[in-house]
């Protein structure tokens, strides 16, 4: 099997004499047998640690859950600095979790959570922070401060949690460079290995924000345009 890897600004071709293996196993073969300078990230090999996301033929996948075919082009994720080859620096992307204030803010007293309550944020809490959605998001080409899909999904996880004492700090944190900067283009949805739909989560957060009295700045901007003619 012949696979192509983008390393820095060049494309390299490697012949991997293995069949039916995952892309991650193929990358391991190249590193251990052909070129030990190859860099990529890996961890659990079973799609829960979120380390090994890359792009294959322009689509984000987990290398441990993808079986490569002849002539596949493997590239690093976008919207993040490349450390080397397929390894990217996640620091700035992960910092958006903090900017979004996506965390538990517990009530003093313990609360009974029903099965139905638990379903409200079960899917959002399946996120493995692989950054596939972050890489697929086109907003970063115009706004590099966009809080982005995974951090906003994480916000909804806590906003929808009945144990949360106060959802206002999280809602407030995602008004600027947040829910209204998303173009609802849907690019983040098909690439999620966990079947999460950040775009939908962002729409739900917009509704919740509206109910809480936050205004969509784009609508205000629209009025401004309207008064100009």
């Amino acid at each position: 099997m012949k696979i192509k890897l983008q390393r820095s600004d060049k494309i390299f071709e490697y012949e991997v004499p293995l069949n039916g293996v995952t892309l991650l196993e193929a990358l391991g073969y190249i590193k251990e047998n052909i070129d030990s300078t190859l860099a990529f990230s890996s961890g659990c090999r079973s799609s829960v640690c979120g380390s090994c996301a890359v792009r294959v033929n322009d689509k984000e996948v987990l290398a441990c859950a993808y079986k490569p075919k002849d002539d596949d082009l493997i590239q690093p994720l976008r919207n993040m600095p490349i450390l080397r080859d397929l390894a990217v620096d996640m620091d700035r992307a992960l910092a958006f979790n903090k900017i979004a204030k996506a965390w538990g803010l517990p009530k003093e007293e313990a609360l009974h959570v029903s099965g139905e309550d638990a379903k409200r944020n079960e899917l959002q809490s399946d996120c493995i922070l692989c950054s596939a959605c972050f890489s697929a998001c086109p907003v970063y080409s115009v706004n590099e401060d966009f809080i982005g899909p995974f951090a906003l999904t994480r916000s909804l996880r806590y906003v929808n949690d009945i144990r949360q004492k106060d959802i206002k700090p999280t809602i407030e944190a995602i008004q600027t460079n947040g829910i209204y900067d998303c173009t609802l283009c849907n690019e983040c949805v098909p690439v999620c290995p966990q079947g999460i739909a950040p775009k939908q989560d962002i729409e739900i957060l917009r509704n919740k924000s509206g109910i809480m009295g936050y205004l969509n700045p784009n609508i205000l901007a629209g009025f401004d345009d309207g008064l100009n003619f």
């Binding site: 538990g104 517990p106 313990a110 959570v113 099965g115 638990a118 079960e122 144990r163």
Partner: peptide
């Protein structure tokens, strides 16, 4: 439970 771990639930 308090800090938000999304445990599966039945009665508790």
């Amino acid at each position: 439970d308090k800090i938000g771990v999304p445990f599966s639930r039945n009665k508790g």
